[in-house]
Design a protein around this nucleic acid. Sequence first.
DNA 1: CGAGGAGCGA
DNA 2: ACGTCGCTCCTCGA
Length: 479
Amino acid sequence: MQRIEKNPFGYRHPPLTGGQFKYTDYSIISGLSGKRGKKDWVSWADAELELILEDTPENRVWALSQVVGNNEIESFYILTLESDLIGVLVRMETVGVAFDRKKLEDIGQRIRTDIRKLEIEIYELVWPINISSPKQLQTLFFETLGIRPLKKNKTGYSVDVDVLEEIAKTHDIARLILEYRGLSKLSGTYVDGLMRAAWADGRIHTTYDSLGAATGRMSSNDPNLQNIPTGDGYAREIKECFIPSMDNILLVADYSQVEIRVLAFLSQDQSLIDAFQSGEDIHMRTAKFLFWENQIITSHMRRIAKTVNFGVIYGITGFGLAKTLDCSVTEAQQYVDAFYTRYPGVRTYYDRLLADARTNGYVETYFGRRRYIPGVGDANKTMRSIAEREAMNMPVQGTAADMIKIAMVELDRRITSEWLQGKMILQVHDELVFDIPVDEKEIFEVMVWEVMEWVLHSSWVSLPIIVDISTGDNWAEAK
DNA sequence: CGAGGAGCGA
DNA sequence: ACGTCGCTCCTCGA
């Protein structure tokens, strides 16, 4: 059998302004067995990949087994899904997203002006200092100003946003530094970064790593388009720079609270399912459980409930929740306990999940994607707790990732078979963005809605999956 | 050039 | 120790 050299199916993108090239790894084997620790991918270099070209079930499983060993073969469904997704991602990367560089340049100038003003204000209070140096800020606050440190990190005392918010109550300079930080982030990562990333064709072409996360989520890099700011002000203006192609509009479709719905689906908790079937606001429902059933729920109470809902998915502890909510550990623990009391199926689901993880050494999504978690058997309590949170989170995050990947493959297929001009251009974990002609708006709305909601259905439980769709002349408007 | 801190998103 | 998953920018020291 002929051995194929590494990256035989490499796809080369059109040249950048500076004559650089981007390269999309076209292999389907890389990483399919999941990470064993940070960045510890299974190598696929020695697989005989021509078998994958033949694309038969036996060949795929054989090729995979050459790399990962027979005991850790991924489900065939996931292997097929990842294989099918490769071409979809290549098309998305190649099309890219249109980008308004002039507008970003203008935004950048205004941000830089604001930064200079802030620098002057800060330097009137302290000079000399590098505001971007945590080390120097540490010296300023905890030695020069004699403030009591709140939080430690590996190298000393933290000066992150939580700490500075606290210091800002008594020292104005902390507030200025926070403003400076925010603007610096926008200027460096988003204005300068995106300006560098824009191609001569006036578009930005990210690169997706289909197996970028250990849970099955994708990641995006060069540039990362999955962490474009969402806020108001400059952040919103930056997002407005992402625009449709000439005469087109952007259509954004995003899953509503998909991870909590997935938790309801996986755990089969009747109370959680009822909440979604009734169409009630899930955070409001949890708030009623955590506080008094008939009491008026304030926005503050709803915020706590929302934090608890998300926290549970991450395997949060009373201590961690207390830190997030800035309340006592006792109070936070009461919230966590109340959640599990009112959604008892979630507790039994997690108990069963962790027991299975200890038995099998892995957890898996509804569709059979696996993550190996050796740490669940670790003698060290800290290591074991970390592993348990990973085990609890993966099936939820991973099933949501499976869902949107399945939808992407199906939507790509329909766009092609129905000869539509619109294109799928971006994925942000629970959101898909399409660049479409105005006259395809209704077709896309119906099609995207149908496919995205269809991917998680079963005969024994009816759980509503809700997709919100909106359109606009830029990414901020369409969101 | 890499580690660490920080901050942006889901 | 203390909530999951990522990527990129900056500083600082080898």
